[in-house]
């Protein structure tokens, strides 16, 4: 079955893209979830939308930008948005979450204005909104691979610092861990992952692979390391089975992947409940 699918280059691209995104999304997602920052991914994905729209507008109006993939502009916007987010969070120390609606609505507002200024686009913007993994090109695949390498390096190098900052920021700072610039690097990583995963699951669903597999693994893991590993396992499972299902059922790939990851979460919750009931039964 796999051989049949893999004979097409676009299907190969889809699988490799899925594998990369399925790996790096939960990797940064674990930190977002335990630091209660899950919604930041959503806010930044909307900023990326405005960047993609700006990229398309530039492509249409300026011949110089004709060959520039709008995704690159989206990436620049996403990283810039993450910097604004950190600034707002610092301004409103006691209401940090206020940064999320400000950036989110700012991003979508700018996106809508840019789309209307361009008087609609020839290229289907729905591909960015809902994701279309089957349309991933080789150049985009290379971009994802590069982002993948950067994110994996970041997590390997700063594993201990990120753990300490996530568990207890005050203590970490006292111990001399450079909070400011590690937090800054982390938010840039989040922005990069979002830009990379938009083609797979779309702007509207980008935070799904960052949070749902983590939510599932948090149900039964004791240690941070286990949580990280299981989140990646669940995410890969969701991407591959979602991709197969989408191919055979002719469903939208992004939506199917997200639904499968929710299905995994439900199965984990169900198994946990059954095991608890069995334990109770043994006690009685």
């Amino acid at each position: 079955m796999i051989e049949v699918i893999m004979q097409y280059e676009w299907m190969q691209n889809a699988f490799y893209a899925g594998m990369i995104i399925g790996f790096i999304s939960p990797l940064v997602g674990v930190y977002l979830v335990v630091r209660r920052m899950s919604l930041i991914a959503d806010a930044l994905s909307h900023v990326t939308l405005s960047g993609v729209a700006a990229g398309m507008l530039l492509q249409k109006e300026l011949p110089l930008f004709y060959a520039v993939n709008p995704l690159y502009v989206g990436m620049v916007f996403s990283v810039t948005g993450s910097l604004f987010m950190e600034q707002i969070r610092r301004l409103y120390k006691t209401f940090e979450e206020i940064a999320i609606p400000i950036i989110l609505s700012g991003g979508i507002g700018l996106g809508v204005v840019l789309i209307s200024a361009a008087d609609g686009f020839n290229v289907d913007i729905a591909g960015y909104l809902f994701g279309n993994i089957l349309a991933v090109g080789r150049d985009e695949l290379w971009l994802m691979a590069a982002i993948g390498v950067i994110v994996v390096l970041f997590v390997c190098i700063f594993y201990k610092e990120m753990f300490a900052l996530s568990f207890d920021e005050d203590h970490a700072v006292l111990a001399g861990i450079p909070r400011k610039w590690i937090n800054f690097l982390f938010i840039v990583m989040v922005a990069l992952v979002i830009a990379a995963s938009i083609r797979v699951v779309g702007i509207l669903l980008v935070s799904a692979l960052m949070t749902i597999p983590v939510a599932a693994s948090l149900q039964f893991t004791n240690s941070f390391r286990q949580t990280l590993i299981w989140s990646v396992v669940f995410s890969q499972l969701a991407v591959f089975s979602g991709l197969f299902a989408a191919y055979y059922l002719d469903w939208a790939s992004g939506g199917t992947i997200v639904l499968v990851s929710i299905l995994i979460l439900l199965i984990v919750l169900f198994v946990k409940k059954v095991m608890r009931m069995m334990k109770l039964g043994n006690l009685l």
Partner: peptide, 26 residues
Amino acid sequence: NSFNSGFPATVKEVVASGLYGKLGLF
């Protein structure tokens, strides 16, 4: 006030984090 009780970390991981500052980056 110091931590979120749902945080997925073992005693060993938390205690080890006390060394991270002294150990330094990289």
